[in-house]
């Protein structure tokens, strides 16, 4: 890629950071160019984020209607899926799936709740409920 073609699209996903891209200068010599991002990349990143949002939103609704436990929502809200949560906690997937059932989740021990809270990086109080507004932090 020629250095003049290195995209500078200021993509939102970089949050004003720049990434180093290898490109050739007018003499054909390779050099590092700081890029504010390529639309193509930004769109792909946001597409993946939108999918995680969609899953979290759907889970949020189902928690509100009492179909599933808040654990399911918090999992998606932390950009995880069942596989990642299972790996982060060391629990079997079927066990976690069981804990998605509200009446079983309500009976979980403090120890088990602490395990989930730690893997998700939230407090046990937060784990037991839903935030008014969803955010990563």
């Amino acid at each position: 890629m020629d250095h003049s073609q290195v995209p500078q699209h200021n993509i939102s996903t970089y949050a004003n950071n720049r990434k180093a891209i290898y490109a050739t200068d007018t003499n054909g010599d390779y050099t590092l160019v700081a890029s504010s991002g390529w639309d193509v990349e930004g769109e792909a990143t946001r597409q993946a984020l939108a999918e995680l949002e969609r899953l979290a939103d759907a889970a949020y609704e189902r928690v509100v209607s009492g179909e599933i436990s808040p654990l399911s929502f918090h999992m998606y809200n932390r950009r995880m899926d069942l596989q990642v949560l299972a790996e982060s906690t060391g629990l079997f997937k079927w066990r976690i799936r069981r804990h998605f059932r509200p009446h079983i989740f309500a009976r979980l021990s403090e120890k088990m709740l602490a395990l989930y809270a730690d893997a998700l990086g939230i407090s046990t109080e937060e784990l037991g409920g839903l935030p008014e507004q969803r955010s990563l932090r």
Partner: peptide, 23 residues
Amino acid sequence: GHIVRMQEEIGTGGAGFRFIYAS
């Protein structure tokens, strides 16, 4: 979209390391 991300997103120097290798 996943293919694009693996190729461009995670610090590959563009085009999935092919430009770094050319350098």
